[in-house]
Amino acid sequence: NQASVVANQLIPINTALTLVMMRSEVVTPVGIPADDIPRLVSMQVNRAVPLGTTLMPDMVKGYP
């Protein structure tokens, strides 16, 4: 099973992602692959992302 990117904390709308905000976890449904975490750094979320939420491609501005 492939690990996905999961919010490690509440991420407010328009926040630029940092490594501490994300963790990898095997979840269903599958979200953004954990391998993409380095690419996500400094990209902004377009909505508030609660703790434990799987990051989906449509939540991150400019992804992929």
Rank of each mutant, 00 (worst) to 15 (best):
N1P: 15
N1H: 08
Q2E: 15
Q2R: 04
A3Y: 15
A3I: 07
S4H: 01
S4M: 02
V6Q: 03
V6T: 13
A7Y: 01
A7I: 05
A7H: 01
N8G: 10
N8S: 14
N8C: 08
Q9D: 09
Q9E: 11
I11S: 01
I11H: 01
I13K: 08
N14Y: 14
T15G: 05
T15Q: 09
T15L: 04
A16P: 08
A16S: 12
A16V: 12
A16F: 13
T18Y: 03
L19Y: 10
V20M: 10
V20N: 11
M21W: 00
M21Y: 06
M22W: 02
M22E: 03
M22K: 00
R23N: 12
R23P: 03
S24I: 13
S24D: 12
S24W: 07
E25A: 08
V26G: 04
V27A: 08
V27H: 03
T28G: 07
T28M: 10
P29N: 06
P29Q: 04
V30K: 05
V30E: 15
V30I: 11
G31Y: 02
I32D: 01
I32Y: 02
P33H: 09
P33Q: 07
A34R: 04
D35W: 07
I37R: 10
I37F: 03
P38W: 09
R39A: 12
R39F: 07
R39S: 10
R39V: 11
V41W: 03
M43V: 06
M43K: 12
M43P: 02
M43S: 09
M43A: 12
Q44E: 11
V45N: 02
V45Q: 02
V45H: 00
N46M: 15
N46S: 15
R47D: 08
R47K: 15
V49D: 02
P50R: 07
P50K: 14
P50N: 11
L51D: 12
T53C: 06
T54D: 02
L55V: 08
L55N: 00
M56D: 04
P57F: 09
P57R: 07
P57K: 10
D58K: 06
M59R: 02
M59T: 05
M59S: 06
V60L: 11
V60T: 00
K61I: 11
K61V: 13
G62V: 04
G62I: 05
G62K: 11
Y63Q: 04
Y63L: 06
P64D: 13
P64A: 12
